[in-house]
Amino acid sequence: MRKGAIILITVLLTSVTMRAQTLNYKMAAMYVYNFTQYIEWPKNDNSTEFVIGVYGNTPLSDELKKTVIGKHVGAKNIAVKTLTSLDDATNCSILFIAPSQSGNIKKISEQFKGKHILLICDKEGFSKKGASISVYLDEDDDYKTKFELNKEYIEYNGLLISKSLLTLAAKVN
C-alpha cells in the first residue's frame, strides 16, 4: 500500500507528458470576432476590409480564418492576415499577439498607441501589461474561457467600447 502510494504520488507530480488543458482556439476565435460587435472603430478610413492581424505562430490564425468566413464588420469584409513583422500591422484594426511574442506586449503597446488598433493577447493578466483585451482559460473556474480588458488602453487607442462588453468581462482594469 505504502509503495503504491509513493509510486502514485511520483506519477502525479511528474506526469508532465500529460497535456494540461489549453485555450480552445475555436472558442478564442469566436471571442475575437465577437469583440468587433462591441467596439467601434473610427469611420474615417476608406479601406474595404476589416483586417485582423495575427503576429506570431499560433493555431488561432487558422481558426480565425474559418470563423470569419462570410462575416462583416459594418460593410467591411473581414480579412485575417498572419504577420511576420509588426511593420505590416499598420492597416490592422485588431492585432492578436501570439504567446511566442507576448513577452514584448508592453513594447508593442507603446508602438501602436493611438493607432486605432485593438491589441489582444491570450494570457491572463496581460491587460495590465499593455493588451487591450486578453482571452484566457480560467483554471480556477473549471477551465472556462473568459476575457479581461483594459478600458483605458482601449479608449486611449481611440476606440469606443460598449457598456455591455464591460459587464461581460471577467475583469476590467
Binding site: Q21, Y31, F35, Q37, D142, Y143, K144, T145, L168
Partner: peptide, 10 residues
C-alpha cells in the same frame, strides 16, 4: 453571441 460563449464550458 459573447453572452452564449461565456456560458459554455471550455
Amino acid at each position: 453571441t459573447l453572452e452564449q460563449l461565456l456560458k459554455i464550458q471550455e
